[in-house]
Design a protein around this nucleic acid. Structure first.
Lengths: 335, 335
DNA sequence: TTCCTCCGTCGAAGCGCTTCGACGTCACGC
DNA sequence: GCGTGACGTCGAAGCGCTTCGACGGAGGAA
């Protein structure tokens, strides 16, 4: 194994000079730097990660905790993970993969062992049991998703309020005057100020601004509930021509139900959704949707961690702007 | 930070004794061991990963390289990754995630820096440019998939020959007498002794054993090619009632084509496939299939690495037994 | 009893790197 | 001309752990 003393000897300098040439933490003359770099190249030197971590108390490794729960959309997780790895590499860091399964112990383990410098936790729940742990850890962390109480932590997520607005604005732009939001199951709203609520806020505010008639309908995540809701919507809002769906599970059954009830999508009814792109695109009628920007999310999470690692203060909450992709489920309102 | 000397003091022993009590590399009396464990618990001691890696030249971390190519089935990769992490943890190892994108440099980097003890490389190609690198690295590795030339390396994969056999045997068991294999595009076979060839071997051998009339048909990965092939099969093999498909891309178009030609699946034609479970299950007609056992694959890969790390010799090639899942595309042959 | 062996433990020497303080040199200002 | 920084480099001291050799004591063999 080639070590720093080998490089130093070859370059005719001391080991500390090699270290400084590499880290840039002290000024080194161009001439010396050149010689050091040449020696490194010629010998194929690669600093020993463990030795480095021990001496500098920095492992240059980030932990990434990925969720396993059923109902999680796998490609989204994967895309996020890849983005985290790619971004981390740009900052000269590597990524250690942990599964949710290991739970809090896993987090504590890698943090206390100084195996990682910082942590990224996906799929944060409203009352996530890992919150107190993350607060108590002496390493920075970033959470994907917003818990109820994020005091002292750092969270990133899609701006669901803006996503709700965007969907409505699109429908309004197409001339629709009566819109409805098909939301998450009722219990999601009961739990508190969550992303589901934010969608409602955005939806309602934007409908108001555009002077649309609007209504909000939580919906159980079952095809039967979707069908009942479709019937009710037609009955109670006969002029309805625009629907925003924030409930992956009922998206397809809902559209089916509407069509069985005689409405064509998008000719008679325009549908937009907030859901993973893959879901929206794979439907029989590809749905115009606002996607979870997983790649951007991963990048931002890493960026925030890097700042925290350098001691820079970062905002407690970061909201990413939504982007809407036009697909086959939206059309201008027929006169 | 709690260190080994703190534990030693508290337990009334020397640091080396604590180390030995932890590693079991030298005999320690039960009494001492108890005191050490108590001290560890009371102080919340956790060995510093970097220090440990430096002193022992073992990081207890495995590298996992995941593919990014289009056409890779994401859930399969994810399942595999989770399985690797879980298995690694059982052996007290962690997993560092690398993307294919980093390529050979990434492998060399983490290996030379002693950041990882061993590597798992997914999605190995027939003439993978990483092969010579893996051979030259001083760390053990396991590849998922078989390259043309695996001399000196360790590979794991589904036993594609047995998979081909299994499909045929199932069809034979259902009474089918004339079967066809719809295979990968021709160029795949030209490249050499690969998994595609093994499927053919298994298919042919099993058909022979069961005294079935059989034929093999490579097929381009386009719907048009699938349609042409369907027509040809019906023309040239009018008695055909069983098809084995080893070509994800044409699975759906092929079934569509058969049905458009007046054959009902499974009433007139039974179809089995070798493809990811998710693909098989998501089709309009869920297809009876042999899946890639990704979880088992991950586990085996880790197990093999652990053996190699302890210096145990392992087989160069490990083949996993295929499992067939019955779905809606197979039925007994009508008299 | 004596000798040898094995068991259980200790002390010390690193593992390869970073970092701190120190030191010589040179340029500049007064 | 001399003090004063800033610059560029060096030496040495760890970072926290493992591991090697050594050693005292107990037990068995001779």
């Amino acid at each position: 194994m080639v070590k720093i003393t080998d490089v130093a000897r070859r370059a005719g300098v001391s080991p500390s000079t090699v270290s400084y040439a590499l880290s840039g933490k002290r000024p080194i003359s161009d001439e010396t730097k050149r010689r050091v770099e040449a020696a490194i190249r010629e010998l194929g030197y690669r600093p020993h990660a463990g030795a480095r971590a021990l001496a500098s108390s920095r492992s240059n490794v980030l932990a990434l905790v990925i969720p396993l729960r059923a109902g999680i959309h796998v490609p989204v997780v994967m895309q996020f993970a890849v983005s985290v790895v790619t971004s981390a590499r740009r900052h000269d860091h590597d990524v250690l993969l942990l599964t949710q399964e290991e739970g809090e112990d896993g987090l504590r383990r890698v943090a206390d062992a100084a195996l990682v410098d910082a942590l990224i936790v996906m799929d944060v729940q409203l009352r996530d049991p890992r919150l107190p742990l993350l607060r108590s850890l002496d390493r920075p962390s970033v959470m994907i998703g917003f818990p109820l109480e994020s005091e002292g932590l750092t969270c990133v997520d899609l701006d669901f309020k803006a996503a709700g607005e965007l969907c409505v604005e699109r429908l309004a732009g197409l001339g629709h005057r009566v819109v409805a939001l098909v939301g998450s199951p009722p219990e999601v709203y009961v739990r508190g100020t969550a992303f589901a609520q934010r969608v409602v806020q955005g939806f309602t505010a934007a409908a108001h601004r555009s002077a649309l008639a609007s209504s909000v309908h939580p919906c159980e995540a079952t095809p039967a509930a979707a069908r009942r809701l479709a019937e009710r919507l037609l009955r109670e809002h006969p002029a309805l021509t625009g629907v925003v769906v924030h409930n992956e599970a009922v998206l397809e059954p809902l559209i089916d139900a509407f069509e069985q009830l005689g409405l064509r999508v998008p000719a008679d009814l325009s549908v937009t959704a907030i859901c993973p792109d893959e879901t929206a695109a794979a439907l029989r009628v590809p749905v115009t949707s606002v996607a979870l920007p997983s790649a951007e999310l991963g990048e931002r999470a890493v960026e925030l961690l890097m700042q925290k690692l350098t001691g820079t203060a970062v905002p407690q909450e970061t909201l990413l702007a939504p982007h809407l992709t036009e697909r086959a489920s939206t059309a201008p309102r027929l006169a």
